[in-house]
């Protein structure tokens, strides 16, 4: 009953907050931002699970490490519309505690995976051996993966790696007096319900990156290489092309080790370097099981002047996968 009453109070409080909202909005990209991070593959799933983590040299661990040592590709979408192509310094870190967004916990193992200077756009780090981070290469040659950061993450995880070991990748970008730490988690999972191919029952499969097939503006297709002319105050309706067939059914373990069947419900975050979107993000299913239509309206704002506008649409599948589309338009009042 107390919780129900809180719902009513919360509705009132939100109403009050809505009355005094700040002008800055997530969809309004006007300074240095990290809009999304993807890793390819989005998930590394071992064929079977190891519940006794002390058996670090067992065959199952070795089998898992064969998968988990797969190098990944890291890509961050960095927007810096006011920077005019300025240099952005970056560093990529990983460490044992996902709660440590800056990899600065004293005494925790941490590893710098890369660094340098970039400009706004996509920052790519290829062939990142994240799963082998911290492993003694000489010992690994003898089949011993002990010392891997994965195990350090597992020890600090209150769930002890249940469902997946979530290894953090913390990107630090800095330009001028603007500074961002952006975290992406990489799930190292295992198949809790292994079975022969074709056998009945739920099957756990590694995640596939969600990719929007395209997007429309005011109902018209909007190609990547096209600069769409937009005129007037709007709003202009942005909508992805149908993608429902791409949303995966997937199986996850319950705490009682029972399979729970679930379906992805993608969410799209909408961004532009002029004006704003409403809603800022759409999609996903709520607690009542009702899915939201993925659609948003862009408005240039009352003080906007003629401009080339860049749009970004970042899609997330709710299990670690994400990707984005970039589009361009020329807007006139």
């Amino acid at each position: 009953m107390t919780r129900l009453r809180l719902i009513v109070v919360a509705v009132g409080a939100l109403t009050l907050v809505a009355c005094v909202g700040p002008e800055d909005r997530p969809s309004k990209v006007h300074d240095l931002r990290v809009l999304g991070v993807r890793t390819d593959p989005p998930e590394l799933m071992a064929p079977a699970c190891i519940f006794d983590v002390s058996a670090a040299q067992g065959p199952l661990v070795q089998q898992a490490f064969t998968i988990w040592s797969t190098p990944i590709r890291y890509t961050a979408l960095i927007a810096d519309p006011a920077g005019n192509g300025r240099e952005i310094s970056w560093e990529l870190w990983t460490c044992a505690d996902p709660g440590d967004r800056t990899c600065s916990n004293e005494g925790d193992p941490r590893f710098r995976l890369g660094g340098g200077v970039t400009v706004g756009g996509e920052l790519v780090v290829e062939q990142l051996p994240l799963g082998l981070t911290g492993v003694d290469i000489d010992r690994l040659a003898n089949g011993d993966p002990s010392g891997a950061l994965l195990f350090e993450v597992l020890q600090r995880d209150p769930y002890k790696g249940f469902d997946s070991i979530r290894v953090p990748l913390n990107l630090h970008v800095k330009a001028g007096d603007e500074e961002i730490w952006a975290q992406k988690l990489v799930p190292y999972s295992c198949n809790y319900f292994p079975k022969a191919e074709g056998a009945p029952g739920p099957t756990m499969r590694p995640n596939v990156q969600p990719e929007l097939p395209g997007v429309t503006i005011d109902g018209k297709p909007w190609r990547e290489d096209e600069v769409v002319a937009l005129t007037g105050p709007g709003p202009f309706v942005a909508e992805p092309l149908p993608y429902e067939d791409l949303e995966e059914n997937f199986v996850r373990p319950s705490f009682q080790l029972e399979p729970v069947e679930t379906k992805e419900s993608w969410k799209v975050a909408w961004y532009a370097d002029l004006g704003f979107f409403s809603p800022e993000e759409s999609g996903g299913a709520n607690l009542g099981g009702v899915e939201e239509r993925v659609r948003s309206e862009w408005s240039p704002g009352s003080t906007a002047t003629e401009k080339d506008v860049t749009f970004w649409f970042v899609v997330r599948d709710g299990r670690g996968g994400q990707s984005w589309l970039t589009r361009h338009a020329h807007w006139r009042p």
């Binding site: 729970v260 679930t262 099981g289 899915e291 299990r319």
Partner: peptide, 22 residues
């Protein structure tokens, strides 16, 4: 009749809003 709730029956993924079983 309620959906499978992250944190109670399964370990959720941060920010996830999947369509789950009722």
């Amino acid at each position: 009749e309620v959906p499978v709730v992250s944190g109670f029956q399964v370990r959720g993924w941060p920010g996830a809003e999947p369509k789950t079983e009722m």
